[in-house]
Design a protein around this nucleic acid. Structure first.
Ligand SMILES: [Mn+2]
Ligand SMILES: [Mn+2]
Ligand SMILES: [Zn+2]
Ligand SMILES: [Zn+2]
Lengths: 156, 156
DNA sequence: CACAAATTGAAATTCAATATCAATATTACA
DNA sequence: TGTAATATTGATATTGAATTTCAATTTGTG
């Protein structure tokens, strides 16, 4: 998963500030707080609810809608990916470096998610697109199954 | 997309009847009607709502919940796939032959969907899974972008 | 400071998915 | 064939995440 050095947080903050300037949005302390929490969040693929609950501990007045809107903002300006692993809730994760792409192995036993990037797969995907005269902007590959610990502890 | 001969409708009906028998469910005329409509539906990837609207024309008394439940039943017994292309509504499509798998190119301009199957991609996916000690049961590959007609008519 | 414009947070709304439940249909079997 | 047990149906209600609304507040610009 380490194909390139991760963008430092300071640089991401700069990118956000630039986006805010460009779009004539405003800098607010809520956005700063959510920025800090999101880019320091320990787990991967956090839901709005999860981040909101975490934030409330230090900032009881923050609103769910603000967290929701701010994560969308991060996505808009290319700082976050929105993911949907089929459990009916959107999840967000930081873009680790510019132009990054990765896919997911998802354990249907314990929910564990493993990230991977495979150049071959990307390559063949592009081939399929060209064959069909498609201009592909992004793609999503998800492998669902059981991780090693879940396979072991399973009947059959 | 034609890797094998499509299962004839009669055989699918038999599969459904067997499933119903095995699970001690009941044969009903609603299920028969929905079966016929679903496996003859002209478009691909139909939503519950769409199929329901179609059915209502000939069968005004049929309920939405019945269509919903019956499509889930088809999925359960392996006769249908449930898809989610990110527009917030589940879509269903017939399984064309036993063990079939295919993926999708999705046009974000006009909604056109092109199906494909690529053995290389499958192969590398298995490789990734093995590398991570994962037992993969199914996977999903979606390529999002613009189809040829949408690329043409687009500014830049 | 004053104005315009964006943001916030609580609450309301939306909408697909799913559950509820009384009426009805199907099946098993006496 | 009749009857009881069980599953299904369809109208309606509920759920839950996503999104919108809106009055109060904050921010950026001069
Ligand atoms: Mn990820
Ligand atoms: Mn398909
Ligand atoms: Zn697991
Ligand atoms: Zn198109």
């Amino acid at each position: 998963m380490l194909l390139s050095k991760a963008t430092p947080k300071s640089e991401r903050k700069k990118a956000l500030d630039e986006y805010i300037l460009k779009k004539r949005l405003k800098s607010t302390k809520q956005r700063d707080i959510i920025f800090d929490e999101f880019f320091n969040y320990p787990g991967q693929h956090v839901t709005v609810e999860e981040l909101y609950e975490k934030l409330k501990k230090q900032n009881p007045k923050i609103g769910y809608a603000t967290v929701y809107r701010t994560l969308k903002l991060f996505k808009e300006c290319g700082l976050a990916f929105e993911r949907n692993f089929g459990d009916g809730r959107a999840r967000y994760e930081p873009v680790k470096f510019e132009g990054e792409h990765h896919d997911h192995l998802i354990c249907i036993g314990c929910g564990r998610i493993i990230e991977f990037a495979n150049l071959r797969i990307e390559q063949y995907s592009r081939g399929v697109a060209k064959l069909n005269d498609f201009e592909v902007l992004n793609h999503k590959l998800e492998l669902y199954g059981y991780c090693s610990s879940c396979t072991r502890g399973r009947d059959k």
